[in-house]
Amino acid sequence: MSKRSPLQNAGGLTAGSRAVLLLLPVLAVMIALAVGRMQVSSAYIFRSVGEKFGMDAALDTQLESVLWKYRLPRILLALLVGAGLSVSGCAFQSLFANPLATPDTLGVASGACFGAALALLFGAGLLWVQGSAMLFGLLAVLLTYLAGSSKGRSPLGMMILSGIMVGSLFTALISLVKFVADTESQLPAITYWLMGSMSAANYRSLALGAPAVLIGIFVLYILRWRLNILTLSEDEARATGMNLPAMRAVTVLCATAVTAACVSMCGQVGWIGLLVPHIARMRYGNNHLALVPASVMIGSAFTVIVDTLARTLTPSELPLSILTAMIGAPFFIVLMRRSGGWRL
């Protein structure tokens, strides 16, 4: 652990940590660009990038197409989804003062999935899919909050239990959508999409989904110091002069918008919202000044690597959720035991 000088640093990242965190996604992107059914040397990648900036280089048209038409949009999507789900995990954990709160455990992801599936059922365009995902994501978090909060402070377990119930309610509704969907055309599309995959990534869907994710991340980033106050009890938070209802509303809107936009682009990818913030907590502490940027960087790098594994491990592509769980769970247990657990 790096030493902090208390009078220069309010608990944010040190210059060294910043450099390491910036390097992580860059390295992950380099690896992801190079690896695949068609191997591309890093020398070629540098040449090709150089060419884009006006340098002269001899390029291979087939490799060019693989790199920039197929791999890059997919990598960008993975970066975006990883950063987005990690930050919304952080935000939900702070909002509910609960280390287990994530888009998945609060039912937000299932709600957003149902909204998206419903829109797909009606053959709606991507913008509608996103809007519907957002709407039902918000509805899910509202239901979870209403069911799980009691007078005053909500007990930790109750919020998660009600999240699981709301999640299963929306999972049932998703099954209903599948049941009534046309088995020839709609059902395969919905099912494939639900499994969670980056393979459908293209620049058009990125252009539609990215703004919601980026704006959500940006707002949560500039409010990151206040996320610390949000973890306090209601009276304590108000006694810092913060407009608590407004802060809560902005946080829940941003975190849900980010989750919904991610879900509408690549389906449900579990684990990231729980795994990444806690990896960041164990390494960089619980201060959101450090935690939010660290989660963005670790989350994006992690998701790019996992997606690269998903498309290279086996001849046919693996669904992302299977991998995030299979890599995530043991990694998580090892980290948890080594660091002796965690608290908010």
Partner: peptide, 12 residues
């Protein structure tokens, strides 16, 4: 919360 005491006092 599990932040340091200084970070916690800063919330004030």
């Amino acid at each position: 919360s599990a932040t340091t005491v200084l970070e916690f006092v800063l919330l004030g």
